[in-house]
């Protein structure tokens, strides 16, 4: 075990439940390094939803609440409202955040409440055995789309931006250094910060959607499917088509909810 893990993981809760080659552990490692570089380990409050990604904060040795499916964000809103001085970070999945929890997701973004929401997107319901998610590509076969997915997926980052998020970024589990930087920016951003991380799920998505890719093959496949703004600028249109944009996608400033609530406590009318 490396030093960062020894320093921050809740040893008695190990081993982590993740399947071999799952990207969640990589993302968690990047998060811990961001926390370490910011030196904010004692200011953290972590909230997890349900699904594989919801277990990520459970292994971090800070105050953590592992909530119901889809409800991590409202729990985080309640926590943040009572202790605005803390860095509240939500770990959620695509199904948790924009499937069952979609209503909470858009309203937290609208409120611009100072949360960091890390959404692991594996494009499938992994923990329940590989059913179609709101992020599953059109045409993909899963356990509930045996004839191919007849629906189109959500773009979670566009959704976040449209709903009012003031920091929106997308990376993949194959970009750990960029993730560390993005997590640091998001945690320090005074408002609703959303980071989507596209991850390989070799056991469910790898088997059902990708036809049996192992973890390294799957991660390589994800890397091939994405493009940064700089790369896109020099890429011919035919090569750009169908690729997902990664990087910092949106950043803006808007009054933050808990600061506005504090003004109400001081007797200022809004």
């Amino acid at each position: 075990m490396n030093e960062i893990a020894e320093k921050y993981l809740r040893q008695e809760a190990l081993p982590m439940i993740f399947c071999p080659g799952c990207g969640d552990g990589t993302v968690l490692g990047a998060f811990l390094r961001a926390v370490d570089e910011l030196k904010i380990g004692d200011q953290l409050a972590l909230v997890g939803g349900i699904g594989c990604s919801g277990w990520m904060p459970v292994y971090v040795n800070v105050d953590t609440i592992h909530t119901l499916h889809g409800r991590a964000i409202p729990v985080a809103v309640g926590l943040k409202a009572t202790r605005p001085d803390r860095k509240v970070v939500v770990f959620t999945g695509d199904g948790d955040a924009i499937g069952i929890g979609g209503n909470h997701f858009i309203h937290a973004a609208r409120r611009n409440v100072d949360l960091t929401v890390i959404m692991i997107n594996n494009a499938i319901y992994g923990m329940t055995g590989g059913q179609a998610a709101p992020t599953t590509p059109s045409g993909a076969t899963t356990q509930t789309t045996p004839y191919g997915n007849p629906e189109d997926p959500f773009d979670a980052c566009k959704l976040a931006e449209a709903a009012g998020a003031t920091y929106v970024a997308r990376w993949t589990a194959g970009h750990p250094r960029q993730l560390i930087k993005a997590f640091k920016e998001a945690i320090q951003h005074p408002g609703f910060a959303f980071i989507e991380v596209m991850t390989q799920c070799p056991v469910q998505a790898g088997r059902y959607i990708k036809g049996g890719l192992d973890a390294p093959e799957f991660l390589a496949d994800i890397r091939k499917s994405v493009v940064t703004e700089a790369q896109a600028a020099t890429m011919p249109p035919e090569e750009l088509a169908g690729r997902t944009r990664i990087g910092l996608l949106h950043r803006s400033e808007r009054p933050e909810l808990t600061q506005r609530l504090a003004a109400l406590n001081r007797g200022e009318k809004r």
Binding site: M1, N2, E3, I4, A5, L9, P15, M16, F18, G21, C22, G23, D24, G25, T26, L28, G29, A30, R33, G174, P176, R177
Partner: peptide, 9 residues
Amino acid sequence: LICPDQAIR
């Protein structure tokens, strides 16, 4: 950095 299980130092 890539190791999901923090097994590498």
